[in-house]
């Protein structure tokens, strides 16, 4: 266990492994995304109530799911960095924050576009949309806090504290927003009931969720590699890789 953690904390090892990983994962991700999108857009049947507008679900739900999971990834990296002071965990946290923020923003924008044909307005203070908005603020807070600190080691630890507090708070926020919405639910907006989703619609959705997870991993790894290249620009092992390439 310890040897693995130590290896993961070693930049040369990580740089080599992540290079191989990205080379494989990036084409696979693109393929999964294209297949899933085409399947969802062109092959899957339309919803009997919402018609074709429901096809937005194939990007809305995956981005929302991965955005939420991304916050936990970030907070976990923050905890590792606080407890073991591993530099690589700082880099992971720093790399995951903007990716998560972009995914959250995508979930919000697609949700708003979906709302127009379904509910007739661009924005509805629906429980899930409101929770995503708050998640976006949480992400932006982490990014802004990191940028505001001059000492980047201290910045990473400050972001770790903030994201841990946020992690504990996220379930409470989700639950409270849920209750708030059920208390105030306007009569004009009918919630589509929890009906069982047909397999012909479910499979492309699952495919897209897997694709978005892969995309999150690829984007975080690429960010980490770019950051590591700059941090270790004077190091011999990196110079060797560069001149060898």
């Amino acid at each position: 266990m310890w040897t693995i953690i130590h290896k993961m904390g070693s930049p040369p090892w990580f740089f080599r492994i992540s290079g191989v990983l990205v080379r494989w994962l990036l084409p696979i991700t693109v393929m999964l995304l294209v297949c899933g999108a085409l399947w969802g857009l062109l092959v899957a049947p339309p919803d009997f109530r919402q018609g074709n507008s429901y096809r937005i679900i194939y990007i809305h739900v995956p981005s929302a799911v991965v955005a939420l999971a991304g916050y936990y990834v970030m907070a976990f990296a923050g905890a590792v960095s606080l407890i073991w002071r591993i530099k690589m965990a700082d880099v992971t946290m720093r790399a995951a924050a903007p990716v998560g923020a972009v995914l959250t923003a995508i979930a919000l924008v697609t949700g708003a576009i979906w709302g127009k044909p379904t509910w007739g307005t661009w924005w509805v203070w629906d429980a899930r949309i409101t929770s995503m908005l708050i998640l976006l603020f949480l992400y932006l807070g982490v990014v802004a806090l990191f940028e505001a600190y001059e000492n980047k080691t201290a910045a990473a630890r400050a972001c770790a504290v903030l994201s841990l507090v946020g992690t504990v708070n996220i379930p409470i926020i989700y639950k409270s927003v849920d209750w708030w919405y059920s208390l105030h639910q306007p009569a004009s907006i009918k919630f589509t009931g929890e009906s069982a989703i047909d397999a012909s619609m479910l499979y492309p959705l699952l495919l897209m969720i897997v694709a978005f997870y892969c995309l999150f991993a690829v984007a975080v790894l690429l960010n980490m590699r770019a950051e590591l290249t700059w941090q270790h620009r004077e190091a011999g092992w990196l110079r060797q890789i560069v001149s060898g390439a």
Binding site: I106, T110, L215, A219, A226
Partner: peptide, 29 residues
């Protein structure tokens, strides 16, 4: 798409653009 095409394609386009940037920017850096 029976009148929903604008919304669906707009949503996919607004997803594809930031995702491309998300991969391209670190590669550029």
């Amino acid at each position: 798409m029976d009148g929903h095409g604008f919304y669906v394609w707009l949503a996919y386009a607004l997803t594809a653009i930031p995702l491309c940037f998300m991969v391209w920017l670190p590669l550029k850096r």
